[in-house]
Nucleic acid binder design. Sequence first.
DNA 1: CAAAAAAAAGATATTTTTATCTTGAATTAT
DNA 2: ATAATTCAAGATAAAAATATCTTTTTTTTG
Lengths: 152, 152
Amino acid sequence: MLSNACKYAIRSILYLSIYSDKTNKIGVKKIAEELETPQPFLAKLLQQLTKNKLVSSTKGPNGGFYLSDENRENSIWDIVENIDGVKKFNQCFLGLSKCEDANPCPVHYIAAPFKNKILSDFRDKSIARFTSEIIDTNKVLSLKDYDALKLD
Amino acid sequence: MLSNACKYAIRSILYLSIYSDKTNKIGVKKIAEELETPQPFLAKLLQQLTKNKLVSSTKGPNGGFYLSDENRENSIWDIVENIDGVKKFNQCFLGLSKCEDANPCPVHYIAAPFKNKILSDFRDKSIARFTSEIIDTNKVLSLKDYDALKLD
DNA sequence: CAAAAAAAAGATATTTTTATCTTGAATTAT
DNA sequence: ATAATTCAAGATAAAAATATCTTTTTTTTG
Ligand code: FES
Ligand code: FES
């Protein structure tokens, strides 16, 4: 449903949201290691996300990527739009050209509620809120295998 | 989540389940037109599905593809396994290597119930039952755009 | 200022998915 | 039998997604 690129992007931004700020930037190398994603590919992605104001960056020593307060006001949905485009998500689970109640495919009534739920979660919460919920519930919500992002 | 190939396969088999039997076979050309899928690609798929006993076929004039009673005892899940493999479906929505309650990603508790629901629907019902439910509810459950498969 | 660090940009490569084409084999109707 | 029809099989092609490499630019630190 989401491309690898998009998954990497979401994970990166959630990671940056938890661990970075203006005074604590993080380089691609570190991010790629933490999230176990291909480094140069992630670099390209972050480049694109930066150009589109979803993440921030500075060059030079102690430079790297981080999320500004403005960046944190975006939603996960903004990331999806940026990388995969909107269509990807509105598509029918079985590949019909339109997914709508008026013309449901055989699994529409199973798939549609899920899509709506994910969609509203992605669209209605800011990155900031999404992140604080992760932190507040104090669950081990890892971004890569095992508990890499365990908040202790 | 599912590949195009797999979507084509599922739609084809549901189509054949509704419209074909031993005495009424349907050619690739017709199927591809009805489902609006690329014809030679679908031919390859049907070939594979036939080899793997998920559909039946005969050559020659009035030949074509159809579902035998045995074919109808398979599940949608069998199709998915055949084309995309099992893994595809067990994957984490954000791309972690494992999707499990013990190590949930930030959207796990939204995605997991959906996956379980689809999975059980796909796995526990035979094609035959799936199809008769489509017919019985008498809904316009089309397999391609608009109401191509409207059961009147 | 010079050197090092790090992202930006652009080019290239690999892999996977999707799609097509060509030839061969089986079946049926005439 | 023969010709027509339709699937089978294998080779090939095109497109998209994923991944890497090289060079340039910016920034910071010493
Ligand atoms: S029409 Fe297929 S998922 Fe909605
Ligand atoms: S861990 Fe991500 S969907 Fe289950």
